[in-house]
Simulated assay, not measured.
Amino acid sequence: MFIAYTITAVLLAVILAASAAATHRRNPQVTASMAAVGVPDKYFSQVPSADLLR
Rank of each mutant, 00 (worst) to 15 (best):
P28R: 12
A36M: 03
V10P: 05
D51F: 11
A50F: 15
V14D: 01
R26P: 01
P40H: 06
A32G: 06
G38Q: 04
Q29T: 05
M1Y: 10
A50Y: 14
F2V: 12
T6Y: 02
Q46E: 11
A9V: 13
M34A: 12
R54A: 11
I3F: 12
D51Q: 11
T23F: 06
F44Y: 15
A22F: 11
V37S: 01
S49A: 14
N27Y: 09
A17P: 04
V14P: 00
I3P: 06
M1C: 13
A36G: 02
F2A: 13
P40D: 13
V14F: 06
Q46F: 09
M34F: 14
A21G: 13
P28E: 13
V47A: 06
F2L: 12
L12C: 02
Y5I: 07
R26S: 05
P28V: 05
A36W: 04
I7C: 05
V30C: 02
A17G: 13
M34K: 10
A13Y: 00
L16V: 06
A35I: 08
L53T: 06
R25Q: 07
Q29D: 02
R26W: 01
M1L: 12
D51N: 09
L52N: 09
R25I: 09
T6F: 05
Y5P: 02
K42F: 08
A35Q: 15
T8C: 10
L16G: 12
L52E: 02
S19L: 10
V37N: 00
L11K: 10
V14H: 04
Y5W: 04
V10Q: 03
F44W: 15
L53F: 05
Y5N: 07
A20L: 02
